[in-house]
Write a protein that binds this DNA or RNA. Structure first.
Length: 427
RNA sequence: GGGCCCGUAGCGAAAUUGGUUAUCGCGCCUCCCUGUCACGGAGGAGACUGCCGGUUCGAGUCCGGUCGAGCCCGCCA
């Protein structure tokens, strides 16, 4: 008999069906036993005899009659006629997966990842994550971006330097990519518009709910821009389309977190860093010193302001100080102390950074000198700009941060299957 | 790198100013229950309170050390 998927069970009403899945919960009433069986499409109640021998967690194949029954969740149940345990749990589960809320400490949740991921609420996070990646690909292609994959093993430190992981590479030392920045800029000279979904490695010893040492970046870079607002506008529209796709296809998962809708405004509010700092000080009494980025508390307040004033979960903050941005960032034409760089905040947390880049060779060299960065070892990158790269810019988004904010998760680590932090390399 | 918290059954928590047998819920085991769906009911097992040392008549509780974990700041996505 062919396998019936649980989500399709209504088609088998009055007929025999064979389901394959996992025993999610057992309710033994004495002469009747109810099993909740879960496959990758859903769950169904199975009615079994009192002498049935299964344990919670067992992988089972069950054949039986499908009956419509109002008393069962979902309206249908399967009367078990033949039940085979194809793989059995040999140890008690460390926690109860049948509870609506797992209620575990983060450490337990992650230590037992193979099991905790089976919980519907945890699964929902990664079904939405799947939709996030899918929607990014679809929408970016719709806007003529070409998908690329750039190397993660690098020969030389690109930006910065200290926060790189070093790995042995035959007789040489390599570093793990901390950003696809230079490669995507190179590719602007080839495809004009490119995007990448790829791992990013940061060797920073941070201990926060929003940082990890390996994450997946949603990067993009586009050429022939007028100014950096071309980038913010593009990102705006792309997010809007992505979120509407996720909202539609991920409704069931969003419901589990009580999320009604995913609104991205037609025009995300956009404000200069210096101005938002002034507003935060005047409106909320939070003072941030001049010439620096806003702190996490400030970001939260900026998010609050965006919600109160514009009813937006998002806000662009622009014109970051020259001193705060990397050497390839285009200085602002109006004020050389500022740059054409921006951050995007979602519910008070930075989820993306972007900006216009310097595209002329001489200016790049000049800027590097000003920033006291030696061009040695970076020739391969710099030489690219000898061959006419158009005005361009792009962004890097943190995919897991988007999901964290979307669902209001306590830690970004909940949005990563197997997170890597300072202490955790396993599982 | 700087600062702050926390380690108690498999899991989540409690234990008054130090006080005698370390409590509760979930899970687990046994029994009862034919319509449950966080099933219910009765009973039971399960903890050298992270580890080492100190103070004390007495330490889960106070002190020192050690190991482990988490958070905030910095930095960033």
């Amino acid at each position: 008999m062919e396998r019936a998927l649980i989500s399709q069970i209504s088609k088998y009403e009055g007929k025999s069906a064979l389901i394959k899945g996992r025993v999610f919960n057992i309710r033994n009433l004495g002469n009747i036993v109810f099993l909740v069986v879960q496959d990758y499409t859903g769950t169904i109640q199975v009615v079994a005899d009192k002498d049935v021998e299964v344990k919670t967690g067992d992988a089972v194949v069950i054949e039986g009659l499908v009956k419509k029954d109002e008393r069962a969740k979902g309206g249908f149940e399967l009367k078990s006629e033949k039940l085979e345990v194809v793989s059995n749990t040999i140890e008690d589960l460390p926690f109860d997966l049948a509870k609506d809320d797992l209620n575990l400490n983060l450490v337990t949740l992650l230590d037992y990842r193979p099991l905790s991921l089976r919980h519907p609420r945890v699964q929902a996070i990664f079904r939405l994550y799947d939709l996030l990646l899918k929607s990014y690909e679809i929408v970016m292609r719709e806007y003529d971006f070409t998908e690329i994959k750039t190397p993660k093993l690098l020969g030389a430190a690109t930006e910065g330097g200290a926060n790189f992981f070093k790995v042995k590479y035959f007789e040489k030392e390599a570093t793990l990519a901390q950003s696809p920045q230079f490669y995507k800029q190179i590719m602007v000279g080839v495809f004009e518009r490119v995007f990448e979904i790829g791992s990013v490695f940061r060797a920073e010893p941070h201990f926060t709910t929003r940082h990890v040492n390996e994450y997946v970046g949603l990067d993009a870079e586009m050429g022939f821009i007028k100014d950096f607002y071309d980038i913010t506008k593009t990102l705006n529209i792309i997010l809007k389309k992505m979120f509407s796709m996720i909202e539609k296809e991920g409704k069931d998962c969003l419901d589990l977190y009580g999320i009604k809708g995913l609104e991205v405004p037609e025009e995300i509010p956009i404000i200069k860093l210096s101005e938002i700092k002034k507003i935060i000080k005047e409106k909320y009494g939070h003072d941030i010193s001049e010439g620096t980025d806003i702190d996490p508390k400030g970001e939260e307040l900026a998010g609050q302001y965006a919600k109160e004033k514009f009813n937006s979960d998002f806000i662009f903050i622009t014109h970051y100080p020259y001193s705060d941005r990397p050497f390839y960032t285009m200085p602002s034409p109006e004020d050389e102390k500022e740059t054409c760089g921006f951050d995007l905040l979602y519910k008070g947390l930075e989820i993306a950074t972007g900006g216009q880049r310097i595209h002329k060779y001489e200016e790049l060299i000049k800027n590097m000198k000003k920033k006291k960065i030696k061009p040695e070892g970076m020739e391969f990158y710099l030489n690219v700009f000898k061959f006419a790269i158009p005005p361009h810019g792009g962004w890097g988004m943190g995919s897991e941060r988007i999901i964290k904010q979307m669902l209001g998760l306590e830690s970004i680590k909940e949005a990563i299957l197997f997170p890597r932090d300072v202490k955790r390399l396993i599982p």
